Simulated scan of single mutants.
Amino acid sequence: MYALTLSAELAGVTNLRPKDTQENNFFYTFKVQCTSCREIHPKPIAISRFEMNEISGSRGEANFVWRCKNCKREASATINAAPTAYEQTEPAKAQKILEFDCRGLEFTEFIPEGEWLADGVESNTKFEGIELTEGEWFDYDEKAGEEVSIKDLKWEIVRA
């Protein structure tokens, strides 16, 4: 079992989460490595918790199934549950966002591509279309009359 954790400085917003619903799949993007031969996949992979793929030998299904080009072993990963929203804290502390089970592979890096959502702390303003690939996000909360931001993002993949 592994978990994706996030630590970030949130100003004026809370409940940071990916827009991940049955209607709007969020594709979690990772760099992946084979645990058998340590070969690193040349390109990042994208995995959705709503898509299932067959594991060969009728061993069930997983969200992501990959055969290493180097050692030819099959590996898989499954996202165990819906993502958990990141809550604003002072000071910022690491919180588990996503939990997944990997067999024969490791996710070595998370790439925060895709649409994220957040809520205004005081105003409950709903912020959509948040892009985190640049490592920060700034906006203005009209109801609260103040700037809001997400900065100092630190993603880590840890054993759960």
Rank of each mutant, 00 (worst) to 15 (best):
E23M: 08
E9V: 11
L4N: 03
K31R: 08
Y28W: 15
L6H: 06
Y2N: 15
A8Q: 11
E9T: 11
P18I: 06
N15T: 07
M1R: 04
D20L: 10
N25Y: 08
A3I: 07
T14N: 02
A3V: 06
S7I: 05
G12S: 15
L6T: 13
Q33E: 13
F27T: 02
V13P: 01
F30M: 03
A3W: 03
C34N: 04
K31C: 15
D20Q: 11
M1I: 13
K19A: 13
V13M: 07
F26L: 00
L16G: 05
Q33R: 11
E23A: 05
Y28V: 14
D20A: 09
N15A: 13
Q22S: 09
A11R: 12
Y2I: 14
T29A: 11
N15K: 12
K19L: 15
E23L: 05
L4I: 01
T5Y: 10
F27Q: 01
M1A: 13
Y2F: 15
G12F: 08
T21N: 07
L4T: 00
R17C: 01
E23H: 03
T14W: 01
S7F: 08
A11I: 08
F30W: 09
S7A: 08
K19R: 10
A8W: 10
A11D: 13
N15Q: 09
P18R: 11
K31S: 14
L10N: 03
Q22V: 09
G12Y: 09
Y2R: 15
R17D: 00
L10E: 07
R17G: 00
Y2W: 13
K31D: 13
K31G: 11
F26Y: 02
M1E: 06
M1W: 04
A3H: 13
T21E: 05
T21I: 05
Y2E: 14
S7V: 02
D20F: 10
V32W: 03
Q33A: 15
M1K: 10
E23Q: 10
T29N: 04
N24D: 11
L10G: 03
F30R: 03
S7R: 13
V32G: 02
G12P: 11
L4M: 08
Q22I: 07
T14E: 02
R17W: 00
T5W: 09
E23W: 04
P18K: 04
Q33S: 12
L16V: 06
T29F: 03
A11P: 02
V13E: 05
F30Y: 06
F27H: 01
S7D: 08
M1H: 14
P18T: 01
V13Q: 04
G12M: 12
A8T: 08
L6W: 00
K19E: 05
Q33T: 09
T29W: 00
N24L: 14
F26Q: 00
K19S: 15
T21D: 01
A3Y: 02
L10H: 06
Q22M: 10
M1Q: 12
T21C: 03
G12K: 12
P18W: 01
F30T: 04
L4C: 01
N15E: 10
K19T: 05
T5D: 13
T14M: 00
C34R: 00
V32P: 00
T21V: 06
Y28F: 15
